[in-house]
């Protein structure tokens, strides 16, 4: 199971990297979204996928799943959600104001 998830993470990172290297702003943003999904899955997999009962007090079980990575993922998802929504608005505003979403044309012009 871990191996399958690891391959999935690899695929997510691959597509994310590909999208980031393109020129359209929206594709780049989607690329960062995929990369952060990959990172979150990776956090979950590092602790080992489900190894035991839910980590609750009072439940008789031989082994418990490590709850920490899930807490980390939750935090990280919330942050990347907020940042992604912010950059989507920013990208839209940039497109309206500058009339382009092509990164080549968003380069800095000298001496402004």
């Amino acid at each position: 199971m871990e191996l399958l998830v690891a391959i999935l993470i690899g695929v997510l990172f691959m597509i994310g990297t590909y999208l980031i290297l393109t020129r359209r702003l929206l594709r780049i943003i989607l690329g960062t979204v995929l990369l952060s999904h990959g990172a979150h899955l990776l956090l979950m997999t590092t602790a080992g996928l489900k190894r035991g009962a839910p980590p609750l007090l009072g439940e008789e079980a031989a082994a418990y799943t490590d709850p920490l990575p899930q807490a980390l993922i939750l935090t990280s998802i919330v942050i990347s959600f907020g940042v992604t929504s912010f950059i989507l608005v920013l990208a839209y505003r940039t497109y309206k104001q500058l009339g382009t979403d092509d990164m080549e044309q968003l380069r800095r012009q000298e001496d402004e």
Partner: peptide, 14 residues
Amino acid sequence: LSSVFFVVSVGFLY
């Protein structure tokens, strides 16, 4: 992008 790598590094470290 660097935040994504931060999360990945923390994951590996953990």
